[in-house]
Design a protein around this nucleic acid. Structure first.
Lengths: 232, 232
DNA sequence: CCAAAAGTGTTCAAAGTACACCCATGA
DNA sequence: TCATGGGTGTACTTTGAACACTTTTGG
C-alpha cells in the first residue's frame, strides 16, 4: 500500500457475484441465471454485476439481490463469502469478483433482473459442475460455508419464514447437511439453546399430527453449545 | 455479471493487504509499516500493494509477504481473509483491497520492503486502534479469524518452528486467546488429536525441568474434537 | 536435595445419543 | 379408531475439568 501512484494503477473491474441459497422440497437450491452472451453463452451462472463507483461491496450485493429476487435489503441473510481474481477467469478482461452468500426463505419466483435473461431456483447438484466462469468453485465455497455456519450460529432460521415450527427448522438442517436428524433430540437441543428461538404462543397443524408450537428467530447470533457434534 | 460491457466498467484499483501475525514474548504481534506519504503520512499501516496484471490474488499476497519478511512462499500459513471496498476508504481513488491473513513462526526481523519505509513487529494492542485507512478493522477481523481457527484447526502449529514442544504450542494458544490453559489437560488433548502432532523422537530441556518430547506438524488440517469448548 | 517442568491417573460433572413413551390433532 | 407428527423422560455413554501424583532433568 505504501508508495503507490494512483495514476499508474493496473485497471481491474470489480464485480459482486451472489450465491443465493434456499431450501425447497427438502433440498438445497441455488439461484442461477442463463447467460445470453459470450463468453459461456447458454450456460448457467451465478447472478452478479458491477460494483458502482460510489457503492460499498455489501451495498452492491444487496442491490443485486434485490434486482434478481425482489427481496428488500434486510429480508435475507447476506454476508461476504470470498474474492476470486485469477487473471484468466474472464476471457474479456481482468475481473475480480467479491462473492457473497445469501440465505433466503420461501423465495418468490425469480424475476428477470434488468439484464438477466432467465433465472431459476435449481438443486445444487443439478447445476454444479457445469456453471460458467469459476462459479462451480464459488458455489462450492458458499455451500461449505453454509454447512459450517449452521453448526455454531442461528443462521438456519434465515431459511425459514418469520414464523416456523421446530420440524421445519429441522428439515432445513437435514437439507443442508444431507442427513436425517433425530426429531426428539433436535427438538430438545434447539429449544434449549438460549436466544435461538422465541415461542410466538401460536400453534399450527400444517405439518399434520399434533399441533406444533410456532417460533420466531431469537436474538442470539451464535449457538451455545453448537449443534451436530457427531450424532451418528 | 450477465451483460456487462468491458469498455465501460468502472475503474477500480485492487490491492492486497496483509495481516501477518506471530507470537513473541507471550503476546500476539502484527507486522506494521510506517507510512512515508500522504494520506496518513507518519501513521502505521498494514503492509500491502497492488495486484499485478497477471497475478492471482493469493500470488500477490505471497509476493508481498516475501517482500516484507523475506519468507519464501509456503514457509508460512497464508489464507484470504476478506475484502474491503468502501468508496471513501482511500481518499485518492477507489481502492478495493483483498486482505490476507498470514501466520508466521520465529520471524526474521522485518526487512524494509521495496517501498516500505520502516517495518516492525508490534503487539496488537499497541498499534490498534490507530492504524491508517480502515486497517484497524482489517486487523480486528484477522485476529478474530485466527482466534476462531485455533479452536478447530491445526493452525496453531504455524506459529511454531518446525520442531516444538507441547508447552511451546500451549503458549501459542495462551497468547492468541489471552488466557491460561491447564498444561496437563492441554497436553492430553493435543497429543490425542489424530494427525495434529508427530513425535520426532528427540527431546529437549530448553524449557527447563524434565526433558520434553519434540513434535512436528502432523497431516491433519482440522481437529477432531476441537480444543477449548469452555475450559473456564 | 530442591525446584521446575513433563507427563499420567482418577474423580466428578456435564453433555450427547438412543429410544421408550405419552399427547393432540385430522380423517 | 387409527395414523401422524409433537413433545418429554430416562438410561447409557462419552467428553471435559480439576487436580493429585509420579517422572526426569538442572542447579
Amino acid at each position: 500500500m505504501a508508495g503507490y501512484d494512483p495514476r499508474t494503477f493496473p485497471a481491474v473491474a470489480v464485480t459482486v457475484d451472489l450465491v443465493v441459497l434456499t431450501v425447497r422440497d427438502g433440498g438445497l437450491c441455488v439461484l442461477v441465471v442463463r447467460r445470453g452472451e459470450e463468453p459461456y453463452a447458454g450456460r448457467e451462472a451465478l447472478p452478479g454485476g458491477f460494483v458502482r463507483p460510489d457503492e460499498d461491496l455489501l451495498a452492491a450485493a444487496q442491490r443485486e439481490l434485490a434486482e434478481e429476487t425482489g427481496l428488500t435489503p434486510g429480508a435475507a441473510h447476506l454476508e461476504q463469502l470470498a474474492s476470486y481474481g485469477a487473471p484468466d477467469r474472464d476471457p474479456r478482461m481482468r475481473v475480480v469478483t467479491v462473492a457473497h452468500l445469501a440465505l433466503v426463505a420461501d423465495p418468490p419466483d425469480p424475476r428477470a433482473g434488468s439484464d438477466a435473461a432467465a433465472a431459476r431456483w435449481a438443486p445444487v447438484a443439478e447445476v454444479s459442475p457445469g456453471l460458467a466462469f469459476d462459479h462451480d468453485r464459488v458455489l462450492g465455497d458458499g455451500v461449505a460455508r453454509a454447512r459450517a455456519k449452521l453448526e455454531y450460529t442461528a443462521l438456519a432460521a434465515s431459511f425459514c419464514r418469520s414464523s416456523f415450527t421446530v420440524a421445519e427448522l429441522r428439515r432445513v438442517y437435514e437439507a443442508v447437511w444431507g442427513r436425517p436428524l433425530d426429531p426428539r433430540n433436535f427438538h430438545r437441543k434447539v429449544t434449549s439453546a438460549a436466544g435461538f428461538l422465541e415461542p410466538t404462543g401460536e400453534t399450527t397443524t400444517r405439518d399434520g399430527g399434533r399441533p406444533a408450537q410456532l417460533y420466531r428467530r431469537g436474538p442470539a447470533a451464535a449457538l451455545h453449545p453448537p449443534l451436530l457434534r457427531a450424532e451418528n
